[in-house]
Design a protein around this nucleic acid. Sequence first.
DNA 1: AATGAATGAGGTTTCATTCAT
DNA 2: TATGAATGAAACCTCATTCAT
Lengths: 186, 186, 186, 186
Amino acid sequence: MVAAAERLFSERGYHGVSMDEIAAASGISKPMLYEYFGSKEKLFLACVERARGRLFEEIARAVRGRDEPEQALRGGIEAFLVFADQQRTTWAVLFGEGGTFDEAAAAIRSEQAGLIAQLLRELPGWERDPDAEELDALAHIFVGAAEAIALWALDRPEVTIERVAEHLMAVLWPVVRELPRKRMLA
Amino acid sequence: MVAAAERLFSERGYHGVSMDEIAAASGISKPMLYEYFGSKEKLFLACVERARGRLFEEIARAVRGRDEPEQALRGGIEAFLVFADQQRTTWAVLFGEGGTFDEAAAAIRSEQAGLIAQLLRELPGWERDPDAEELDALAHIFVGAAEAIALWALDRPEVTIERVAEHLMAVLWPVVRELPRKRMLA
Amino acid sequence: MVAAAERLFSERGYHGVSMDEIAAASGISKPMLYEYFGSKEKLFLACVERARGRLFEEIARAVRGRDEPEQALRGGIEAFLVFADQQRTTWAVLFGEGGTFDEAAAAIRSEQAGLIAQLLRELPGWERDPDAEELDALAHIFVGAAEAIALWALDRPEVTIERVAEHLMAVLWPVVRELPRKRMLA
Amino acid sequence: MVAAAERLFSERGYHGVSMDEIAAASGISKPMLYEYFGSKEKLFLACVERARGRLFEEIARAVRGRDEPEQALRGGIEAFLVFADQQRTTWAVLFGEGGTFDEAAAAIRSEQAGLIAQLLRELPGWERDPDAEELDALAHIFVGAAEAIALWALDRPEVTIERVAEHLMAVLWPVVRELPRKRMLA
DNA sequence: AATGAATGAGGTTTCATTCAT
DNA sequence: TATGAATGAAACCTCATTCAT
């Protein structure tokens, strides 16, 4: 039922869709939308939450299925790329609405980065204590890089998803490989 | 005159600002805004263009002022971080409006990545022919990573901008250093 | 069961309360409200009727309990003041809804004034035939004066209800005392 | 321009009139109403204010034109009665909206009673210091009595306005006449 | 007998945009 | 050239009211 809203939002943005349209596309009436979600903002957040849940699941599954860190990283990247294809607009709204969704946006970013940081922490062969700030910053960088390359790929349908993943791997893998061994900050 | 609009947009987003407010903040009347810009969309694009110009200038100046590639990279990163502090919302709107600004967004991304790619091309000591797609993809990754770390830094006022730059350097510098020497894709 | 509705209406006015709220506060479901009362208007009228009944009872009891007219008047005034404390909003709605409740409002006013007029008629020592119009007009004046002083008292919690009653007595008692003896109109 | 709104409100109550209707009746468009008044509540308050101003003027003129207190009182009463004929609904809304207009209602009541109290204070021949609370309470009683008899008169077109005024005089004049001479509270 | 779920209609408010001056 | 005044359209939201169970 929230699927229709999610599709519309991701296609035309938060302000590009009216509650009337969502109601029509959902096959229910507007007051029902309000009965269930309370407001347009909350409905949007429900869509975000749903998308976020799927994203996490898929990344986690892709990562935990592989034993080698390199394969795990590549798997996670590919899962993310597949996903980002659909949710570009939704996320840009979430992070760019100028105050309206700041709280939710921060929460999502935190959680997303938390997942990445956790994965980094679970790398085999740590020879030093992982530094929390370092892992956090890296996680955010990874996510930003992944989002950017996903966007880049959108404009280049001729580039396969595997090749896109390789571009990203070329940047991230050296970092991941060296991370357990030596501190990266001067 | 467009400065007021730029400030408002970057603070509260495209839909968070009305033409009335912009007119009031600019000290001119609404019909004048329409005389000069034609529509709200075009006014917004003018703001984006102006911001883009400044960003390019500042990054270019920061980069070209240093001889060592490592210092140049760091300088560019810092210039970007300073800038991103103010334009976060504007850019998210630009890239997330669901169709409205897609053309302009693509143009900006292209140009921005073009600048980075050009800088990479100008690295000293290339031992091979630079691959256009590779440079382009890297450039986008760099920009995405920089945007992400900038956002991360916004929530952590206790982290100095130099330290933020170092986190990013830790990821980007190895790539830049090795880039002229060997192809990164398998 | 209608008690909940009466409380809500008297607190927030006719339009300030929704049928949803009344149903929730009553512990029954909305369709039951409609089964029992038919419409919001009829439910409101039922509340008014209930309140009116209590008011009459209480005034009548207060008045008939005393033998001396002065004590009876004071008793009635105090009973009214206590009551008006709670029903202010309800009554204002009843009399001010612009057509919706005019019929019921007129009926209530009539009956209320009829009670007062009857009490005046029962004063001891009439030395002339009571004039119907005169009694009716006086009754309305008494009610209006009582409502006004009740409202005045609401804003002044430091004034005791006895003192409020005395203010009103100072105006009404001379009239009541002289009424049976001589015609008041020129 | 606010006249149309005042008429509609006084005929059908606050909730009985929509902004659409007011705009249509005023010959202007809805956004203009909002430009001028900001909200429906504020528009309603503007109507009340306008009516209040007229009421005060008319009462003051009627009262100050006569030298004898008895004539002054009668004049004020008649002015009020004429006025109340039109504003019944408006005022009932003002005083019965359950919180929305409480502040304005209190202000109006205060001012209205203040005017009456001042007139009482200006009675000739005070033989004691006027007691503020007493005057205030009396003023409110007077207003309430006047409103009630005005309402009563509405249902009885056969009763002339002069006769209505006499009914009220019969209650109020003895009080006014004795007021300067002796304290009325025990 | 009783209700969760549903809705048509209408409310206030705002906005981008344009005349008339 | 410049603007105060104006508006059509549409947004979000709520409510009294009714089915299907």
